[in-house]
Amino acid sequence: MASKPKALLDELTHPGPHEVLRGDLALAGLPGVVFTPATGRGLPAVAFGHGWLQPPGRYRGLLHHLASWGIVAAAPATQRGPLPSHRLFAADLCTTLDVVTGVRLGPGAISVDRGKLGLAGHSTGGGAAVLAAASGKQRVKAVATVAAAQTIPPATEAARTLAIPGLHLAAEGDLVAPAAGNAEAIAKAWAGPVQLRTLGKSSHLAVTEGRHWSQRLLHGKPRFGTQRLVRALFTAFFLTHLTGTTTYHPLLDSGVRHAAITFDPTAAA
């Protein structure tokens, strides 16, 4: 079995063993998408918040990847205008977790464990994920963000109340949400176990997929190398903290190429 960080990273950049089903959250009254393993009881689930102006479809590969590794992944398609309400977006992320835990998924062979819930997001969706976790509307076990942006109310203030594990990925060349004022600030305010990694050769939109008109307004473009890193690190993080497996600790505890650990108070202690 793979045990070295590089081998674990390579393992998790590939799709997992599960066949994946795609569903529509709108059937439960909330616009958005959900990806699930074809079967499974008591599965972990993650609600993902999209970036500013981005449709959830720009994260299809990431959501599909998480589902292939046994994690139900859902993304609401709300607050997509130029002036989104971060507070309402956070509420929508909580509602998304309500939906996947309370509504029949797939052909009836899928269920989610309310004790295995996580939140994630990109850009404003990352900040909203922090707000959602701090709201207390769901008993979330872990939060992961990529190129997180500040929110109103501030995600940094919400982070001070969170004793759960956090993983924050900053893009080295991000001109929209620079690490120092966003992901780094959130990580350093985090009350619980936390890690900040910097994704090399990455821009604000590196994690997104395909083309979208918003690229005329926002700096950066999709980058496959960044997408692979985010998929692997998110998968390792959520499998570890939502299912209790220790298999991926070596990867989470180590720096890897283009994803150096830049802040980890536990390691520094």
Rank of each mutant, 00 (worst) to 15 (best):
L167I: 05
G23Y: 04
H18R: 09
A267W: 04
G127L: 08
A133Q: 05
P84H: 01
L169F: 12
I71P: 00
F35K: 02
P178L: 08
S202L: 05
A259K: 06
E11M: 01
G255E: 12
L25Y: 00
L62C: 02
A91V: 07
A269M: 05
P154N: 04
K188W: 00
A155N: 11
R104P: 12
L21W: 07
G49Q: 08
A28Q: 10
G181Y: 06
D113I: 06
G220E: 09
T245H: 12
P154D: 06
E19R: 14
K188Q: 15
V46M: 06
G200K: 09
A142F: 11
V99W: 03
G255N: 04
Q215K: 10
A45H: 11
D264T: 01
R139N: 14
A187M: 08
V100D: 02
L167Q: 15
V230P: 15
Q138T: 02
V176S: 12
V146S: 04
H204D: 12
P37D: 07
L62F: 02
A179W: 00
L119Y: 00
G125N: 07
R211H: 09
H65W: 01
G244D: 09
A38C: 02
K201Y: 10
A129D: 01
R58D: 07
G200I: 08
S203A: 13
